[in-house]
């Protein structure tokens, strides 16, 4: 039982930890201070408030709300978070090298103001969504065992939080010990997979609320990795894996990864720094722009 408490706290916090840990390590590695960090931690604080509010609604209002309401709120939150993740990955790609230099030159300010809100929103949604379930889980166990009986449980909770903190420390250490390039690649892949997991979970909510139909299962890989087990559950929460996917889930995978890779390919054509809006500029103009920039720098 206590092992389960530790595991659940760690698992429920891993998603938020990944998102916030990567953003934090990335901003820090880029020497970003002030505005960006304030937005990140502001988002975490807002996420905690959101988690508490959602937990309260789930515990006290389920019979009063239309049954689909919570599903729709959750689906909207997850789709928004997935969109913010895609946007964040593109932004990190566009500014991977230049952010620190741009900030020192003060160039970054105008471009970034709106992006900081993306950081705020992503942190808030990551904490708020999983946080609400963790809060319910913990309050449930504590209220079930009053008084001194709760002490071992508090110990397990502390261990769960320590496991989460260790994950955080590992993320921050990996920024220092991995090459920047490797850290960037790994974190990018993890963020993209999280975005896929969020999109798939959003579809689950829409099926559960009746907007999308319950479709027949296409194949079954639960013999290989069962998404109902501990490991399979963790993998599915971090990547969108499903052991018995239906048409809707498979379409979501295809749609998400074609959108993601399409956007990244498009962005790859654009390698002129500090031109975050040149995502949609055709390749031939980029050479002209680059030459113009070189001429300007020489002048």
């Amino acid at each position: 039982m206590n092992g389960q408490i530790i595991f659940i706290i760690w698992r429920e916090s891993i998603e938020a930890l990944l998102v916030i840990g990567i953003l934090h390590a990335w901003l820090k590695g880029n020497g970003a201070a002030g505005g960006a960090m304030a937005h990140l931690w502001g988002g975490v604080a807002a996420g905690l408030a959101l988690a508490a509010a959602l937990a309260w609604v789930m515990l006290h209002l389920p019979a009063w709300l239309p049954p689909a309401w919570l599903d729709h709120v959750m689906a909207a939150m997850m789709l928004l978070a997935a969109a913010l993740i895609l946007r964040m990955v593109l932004w990190m790609r566009a500014h991977g090298r230049s952010l620190r230099a741009d900030m020192e030159k003060g160039l970054q300010r105008a471009v970034s103001e709106s992006r900081w809100w993306g950081i705020f929103g992503l942190a808030m949604l990551a904490v708020g969504r999983e946080g609400s379930e963790t809060a319910i889980f913990l309050s449930g166990i504590l209220s079930a065992r009053p008084g001194w009986q709760a002490w071992p449980l508090l110990g397990a909770m502390a261990a769960g939080l320590m496991a989460a903190a260790a994950t955080w420390a590992m993320l921050q250490a990996s920024r220092r010990h991995l090459s920047w390039r490797a850290f960037f690649k790994v974190s990018e892949i993890m963020l993209l997979m999280l975005g896929c997991a969020l999109s798939v979970s959003a579809m689950d909510k829409l099926i559960s609320s009746g907007i999308l139909p319950l479709a027949p299962v296409l194949w079954d890989t639960s013999g290989l990795l069962d998404d109902g087990g501990r490991l399979g559950g963790l993998v599915s929460a971090l990547s969108g894996y499903r052991a018995r996917p239906d048409m809707i889930i498979v379409s979501t995978w295809i749609a998400y990864w074609s959108l993601g890779s399409g956007l990244i390919k498009r962005d790859g054509r654009c390698r002129i720094q500090a031109k975050s809006r040149c995502l949609f500029v055709p390749r031939q103009y980029l050479k002209v722009l680059a030459r113009a920039k070189r001429l300007r720098d020489e002048a």
């Binding site: 789930m58 515990l59 389920p62 449930g140 166990i141 689950d204 909510k205 559960s208 499903r242 018995r244």
Partner: peptide, 21 residues
């Protein structure tokens, strides 16, 4: 006495069931 969470990946349902609810 503790909250439960009804989860079914096959049915695409994940819902909190409050204690005594």
């Amino acid at each position: 006495r503790a909250a439960a969470e009804f989860e079914s990946k096959a049915l695409h349902i994940e819902r909190i069931v409050p204690p005594a609810g």
